[in-house]
Design a protein around this nucleic acid. Structure first.
Lengths: 335, 335
DNA sequence: GCCGCGCATGGAAACGATTACATCGGTCAT
DNA sequence: ATGACCGATGTAATCGTTTCCATGCGCGGC
């Protein structure tokens, strides 16, 4: 593979000059420039980014560590991140943590070893040594969607609390009184916020939230199934279930079907995170939608600000309820 | 950030020795080794992979270029690829081509600039200069799912032809005679195979496949909607539609709903690629399932074989039909 | 006619690792 | 006692860039 030396030789100039035209520095005579460019294309030369990065100490690459690529919410987020990054001249390397702390830290380290310019992360539940160290070491870093308390890192997210209140009001209006929730991992910031908002909203309506109506999930499909199974062994199963992410909602659907029951006749269902398929499920699923693309864009904006030496603050967008038929019918949602 | 020199200084040895213990080369005295290791952990030193790769001319990184991350099939594939690669000590960098040739070539070039050890690609429709050059240049490369004709590159894929024949037989048995298909991009290898198999199977049943029953899609949701709209302006709309990927099937669902029609009462629907949500749509969708994870694993196996100097051949797995209710009911599928 | 200046270019030192080769004791066979 | 050899370590070249500094040249002002 041709190197800058070959180009220099072919163009009859020094490597310094080649480098100058490649990085369009001023002060190269027009004739020289074209000669170099010709040599470049004749040899179909492409600069070695490894060498370049080694020398310049910047990779123009961002790392993105997400908890689960298979979750459509994160897929869409990753996509938005990539788009915005590319528009700003950065590449993105994605690490999928699969909701596991060790895998997450593995990716953080790998990414850092590659000397990425900045790190975008939606941390998995729990305390991450790698992340803590990176933050302390001053690696430009931004949290998106989820975060770790006590770290001075900007956060870009959607506040779901008012949407959760809307949801509870909606369920209440439809006559539901036994409301249950399937939470994510215990220390997950988003799950906790959703749980707290749910509990608060229930209280506003004078409803209790007994412990057995709080299912312990892990944001994965299987846990939705498992928790649902548990709910239906209760003497008084809930009449509505709120899954705090879309995969667990899928698990609920699967288990409800397994049990030979139906949504919403036997139990209502609502999910956090809206996805295209929710419109076509049987029945269509009521969900809280986040402005996913915007989250991705804003996160990249914040991170590149940091990387390029500007300052960046946290951003909070908002989520909203999309009522469909999975919580029962009323005149507004029937069609 | 601490470098190998700092470690050497701290351990009171030369950088060569440090390098030796880091890459566990033999011939380092036990005492020295522990001293070095101590220095490494005290400084929490991490080797700079850029420098290492520059010198060794290998990155232990694989590039994966796929046509659309948002397509659950590819998401799952990417996930499988990453898992297998990690197990073999490689990282993966994903490039999302969004079904656009220019974006695909952009990613191929970027990946090559990073000096990845090998390239896994599911090429978008059309002729790709970058890919052709890479193949000619002898970059270790493997195609997965889709391929480009005329390039001597191993291919890992699932043959869907017999499953398509199964599907047509299934539709025929249910009484459908006006069968339509929504194809992918014109030059797409997978789409062409599916179309040809569909046409062939129809012929076996003595059914025609008129041009207006061949919808021209692009593997994206919107095109499924558009084509469906067209089908229903026909004097004789089809009574069954086969979408050659899952996103276009989603488009069909959306458009059918918009038109105030129902699946399968007004039109039957089947899709290539099975996804978890198909079980819970209204109605559950009949689909052809590929062994996605295996595809990913085998593709990585083939690629690493190439990278590590072994030879690799093409792999063909098979797909199978999963009959659900979206094509109408019969005693086999009713439950 | 000379000096100084600026412009275009080249030479060479980094960046942080790996590794071929040199070096230096010490051991062992003769 | 001597030389060959071996095991542990160090020195320095190298990978492909960027960039600081030096150089050479033409030109305008005095």
């Amino acid at each position: 593979m041709a190197g800058i030396k070959d180009v220099a030789a072919r163009a009859g100039v020094s490597v310094a000059t080649v480098s100058r035209v490649l990085n369009d520095h001023s002060g190269v005579r027009e004739g020289t420039r074209t000669r170099v460019l010709a040599a470049v294309s004749e040899l179909s030369y492409r600069p070695n980014t490894l060498a370049r990065s080694l020398r310049t100490d910047q990779t123009r690459t961002l790392g993105l560590v997400i908890s689960d690529v298979l979750n459509p919410f994160f897929t869409e987020l990753a996509r938005a991140v990539e788009d915005e990054a590319r528009a700003r001249g950065y590449s993105v390397i994605i690490g999928n943590a699969d909701e596991q702390l060790t895998l997450q830290d593995h990716h953080v380290r790998t990414l850092l070893d590659r000397r990425i310019d900045g790190l975008l992360v939606s941390p998995a539940d729990g305390d991450s040594l790698a992340l803590r160290e990176a933050a302390l070491a001053g690696i430009p870093m931004v949290f998106v969607d989820r975060w770790i308390a006590g770290l001075d890192v900007p956060l870009v997210r959607a506040d779901g609390r008012s949407a959760v209140r809307e949801l509870v009001a909606h369920l209440y209006a439809l006559g539901h009184r036994k409301l249950a929730i399937i939470a994510g991992p215990v220390a997950s910031t988003t799950s906790n916020e959703r749980l707290a908002a749910f509990r608060g909203a229930l209280a506003e309506h004078g409803l209790p939230l007994p412990g057995h109506y709080i299912g312990q999930g892990d944001f994965q499909t299987a846990s939705g199934r498992r928790v649902t199974e548990g709910f239906f062994t209760l003497p008084e199963p809930p009449d509505a279930v709120f899954a705090t992410d879309n995969l667990m909602a899928l698990g609920v659907m699967e288990q409800v079907r397994t049990l030979g029951l139906r949504v919403p006749d036997d139990v209502s269902l609502a999910a956090f995170d809206d996805i295209p398929w929710f419109l076509h499920t049987d029945p269509p699923i009521t969900a809280i939608a986040q402005p996913t693309q915007q989250l991705g864009h804003r996160a990249v904006t914040a991170l590149t600000d940091l990387v390029e030496g500007r300052s960046a603050g946290s951003v909070t967008l908002s989520a909203h309820l999309i009522a469909r038929r999975s919580c029962g019918e009323d005149e507004r949602t029937r069609r």
